[in-house]
């Protein structure tokens, strides 16, 4: 699999990362090498094999619908890099 700088740009936008020119070139080369190595999986016959996301057959893990007290707002907000006494703040995000 050939990794292009355009593909790296696309993936970087999705990841909200902005590598500079030098990093971009380095990452492209590294990903190319890593992804090419990943291609060894193509040698494995997986025809008809169900993808396994949860390794153990745990199922139907459910919680009762009973209200528990919420956290104190100041406890949740005190880690905010920018906030006031009632909310987290970000630059304009509403259209």
């Amino acid at each position: 699999m050939k990794i292009t700088e355009e593909l790296v740009d696309y993936v970087a936008i999705l990841s909200r990362l902005k590598p500079d020119e030098e990093e971009r070139a380095r990452i492209t080369a590294e990903l190319e090498k890593i992804v090419s190595y990943m291609d060894v999986l193509n040698a494995l016959d997986t025809e008809g094999i169900e993808p396994l996301s949860h390794v153990f057959p745990v199922k139907n893990v459910l919680r009762e619908d009973a209200v528990e007290p919420s956290f104190l707002r100041e406890e949740l907000l005190k880690n905010a890099p920018v906030g006031d006494e009632e909310a987290f703040l970000v630059p304009k995000a509403v259209e």
């Binding site: 999986l41 193509n42 993808p51 396994l52």
Partner: peptide, 13 residues
Amino acid sequence: YYKKALQAKAVIT
């Protein structure tokens, strides 16, 4: 890639 890896995980398991 991703789906293939989950299938490989099934084979490995």
